[in-house]
Design a protein around this nucleic acid. Structure first.
Lengths: 245, 245
DNA sequence: TCAAAGTCAATCATATTCATTCACAAATAT
DNA sequence: ATATTTGTGAATGAATATGATTGACTTTGA
């Protein structure tokens, strides 16, 4: 049997059944364990399936933003580590952009540089920053309910007036072929615009985001470094991964 | 069975049944107590379920409206009347400016016109508006800590790009010779700019403000109508007073 | 309050899964 | 024909998941 044929069968089976074990694939294909594993690795790196311990599962695109209040409780420890590292990168007189998102919100807790000026499109971030005594500019534009972020063309326009020296962005997915992704096209626009106006660009993301795909790509690996909680072997080749440990 | 599969089943079952015991999960999954516990811990730390003594329950998003309701109870009758009247003035397709301030915030509770577009420089107002399902644009610029209002030249600039059909402003003082006054020069700037871009202008103020003077004058009697809780004999000659009774 | 029953986290031994390496065979190139 | 590449399967030890056990902790009911 051709390798390609085998891989097609695997993808079909995984998508149909949503998950499958290595053993099942060995029986189904009449191939050895090694071959199945090799196929799975290759399919995973091409983003066609997601390899998990014991087998593989189908790639699922999560179409909706979770509500802010719901998302805020995910992975707090990892996010703190990441945020701490990110905050340490801000220097005196930096002009800092902080994107909306729960991970980026944690960064604020660890900021110390009071001679920097901060700009954000997130209402909660702006409030927190002023409360902590920092100078902050909030982007103007339409306010999105679920994430409490300012978005739309007005916001994009607002942001293009600035030139940031450093910036931090969150992401919903980090995927080998799809790059950095987010569920909302308008939030993606804001991310793109703000990144285009920024010199040093960092994506902050806990390792659960690796392999995930959301509907809209807003940047590729070459566009930013990733600050995360552990080195990820698969992605370290194509992306600039910064481990916060 | 893959660990992933098992966890999916747990999440489904918990969300469906709202709560489940460890014993039930052991039977349902055919897994050991240890494994079930481990899965629960992992799912809990990822925020997908909530671990409780004896099992797990579904994550429920609790509405944090308590404070709003509480405030509404404590809210003086006069302000309620004023706000109600102000809100009733908004018509279909209006382009509405709502200034920062506690009195103006109450207006939002009585707004019904969903075909209007709202613009504000107050973070709290913007949040409330989106939460109530209105389209809202938040002015961009420097965020003032104490009042959480967006101020400064950037904000003023932002506002000059719009032409409002109706607008509502608060005030700290209403005085025969000093006109409408407020304590902060920068907030006064924003008030002036926004009023200059607005066709129908209303000051909302309870009657205690009459006779008071704050450091900065931002408008005169000819510039706006006053919505208040009673007709004031002295001022009715020189100002356009609207009684909310 | 107490004791009994139930529940929990930590630990350990076992079983499974994994990536790496090597060996071999078939396909391809020189 | 010979060398090189490519695909495959087997073997290895390392990594990971699992299940049983333990003693500590929590709840329950008297």
């Amino acid at each position: 049997m051709l390798a390609e044929e085998r891989c097609d069968k695997i993808v079909s089976l995984v998508n149909e059944r949503k998950s499958v074990t290595v053993q099942e694939l060995m029986d189904y294909l009449g191939a050895s364990e090694s071959t199945v594993r090799r196929d799975l690795s290759s399919l995973d790196s091409r983003g066609e399936i997601v390899k998990v311990y014991g087998g593989a599962v189908a790639v699922t695109v999560k179409p909706h933003d979770d509500d802010v209040r719901q998302r805020r409780i995910l992975f707090p420890e990892e996010k703190k580590l990441i945020s701490k590292h990110a905050a340490s990168l801000v220097q005196k007189d930096d002009f800092v952009y902080i994107d909306a998102g729960t991970t980026t919100e944690y960064i604020i807790d660890y900021l110390t540089e009071r001679d920097a000026v901060y700009v954000t499109n997130a209402v909660s971030h702006a409030k927190k920053l002023t409360q902590n005594g920092f100078t902050v500019y909030l982007a103007g534009g339409r306010l999105k309910q679920s994430t409490e972020a300012v978005i739309g063309s007005t916001a994009a326009n607002f942001i293009t007036r600035y030139n940031f020296t450093i910036g931090f962005w969150g992401t919903n997915g980090i995927h080998r072929t799809m790059g950095f992704t987010t569920p909302d096209p308008e939030e993606a626009d804001i991310k793109r615009v703000s990144m285009s106006r920024c010199k040093r660009r960092f994506i902050v993301a806990d390792s659960s985001k690796f392999g995930a795909v959301s509907p809209v790509t807003f940047a590729d690996f070459k566009d930013a470094s990733v600050i995360t909680d552990k080195k990820d072997g698969i992605y370290s080749e194509c992306a600039n991964i910064i481990s916060a440990n």
